[in-house]
Simulated assay, not measured.
Amino acid sequence: MATGHTDPQRRERILAATLDHIADEGVAGVSHRKIATRAAVPLGSMTYHFSGIDDLLREAFTRFADHIVGVFERQLDHADGPQQVREAVTDLIHTLSEGPRRDLILTQELYTLAARRPEYRELTQAWMGRSRDLLERHFDPDTARQLDALIEGLTLHRALDGAPHGRELTRQAVDRITSISTP
């Protein structure tokens, strides 16, 4: 098998395997051995690329947060004007809630870690800051904060509800929060 120096994708495979493992078994099941097996890399690669499990988890969750921020960017970047932005936020909520179940699980696993451990709380705060910055391109800071909370809450509710609400209810919620805000 190639060494870390001749296998430039090894680190990426380890991070991807970590997120896949967390989505399948949760953070509690993460170990160097399990991730190395899943990534099809030698066990020694784990300590070569990461200083420990926390380093691995922080990097993996940072990659995941980058992915979700990318979803925000794709939905919001081309919106111009208040009504288009409201539609983009509505689309974002539905994209996230109807997207891969894996993303929902990873989000909740990260939130659980953040509730218990300050270093993960910092990661989630940075993630929220980035999503709010994107929303603040269109809304004042208070409205952006409210919308960010709405996006997270409605995404979770829609994803877990046996009969999720439709676009009209989402649109009404977005309209209510943004009706007094001037983009």
Rank of each mutant, 00 (worst) to 15 (best):
R116A: 12
T124V: 14
R167T: 10
I14Q: 09
T3D: 02
R38H: 04
G29A: 13
S179P: 06
P42Y: 06
V71L: 13
F139L: 10
S181E: 01
T124G: 07
F64P: 12
H138S: 09
R132K: 12
P8C: 05
Q83I: 09
I14G: 10
R171L: 00
L15C: 04
D91E: 10
D7A: 05
G4N: 04
D20K: 02
T37G: 12
P118C: 06
A114E: 04
I68R: 06
E59S: 14
G52N: 15
P100R: 12
L169H: 03
D91R: 08
A17N: 03
A159E: 10
I14C: 09
T124R: 07
H78A: 15
F61E: 02
T62P: 12
A40M: 04
E59K: 14
R145C: 00
A36I: 04
R171P: 00
H49Q: 07
M1W: 02
T178W: 03
L154H: 07
M128D: 15
Q9S: 09
A114R: 06
D140P: 13
V71G: 13
H138T: 07
L76W: 09
A115I: 03
E87Y: 01
L150H: 07
R130P: 12
D55I: 11
A88I: 11
E73R: 13
H21L: 00
R158H: 15
T90G: 06
R58N: 13
P118Q: 09
A173Y: 03
H21S: 01
R137E: 14
T182K: 02
T170Y: 02
S179E: 13
I93E: 01
V27W: 06
E87H: 03
M46I: 11
L160N: 10
R102P: 00
R130D: 15
H21R: 03
T170H: 00
A149L: 09
T124P: 07
R58V: 15
E136H: 07
V85E: 01
L104F: 15
Q9N: 10
L56H: 13
L15P: 01
D55P: 11
Q172N: 08
I180Y: 08
T95S: 11
R158M: 14
A114L: 04
V174E: 02
V41L: 04
L92N: 04
T37V: 15
R10P: 03
R38F: 00
R33Q: 01
W127N: 13
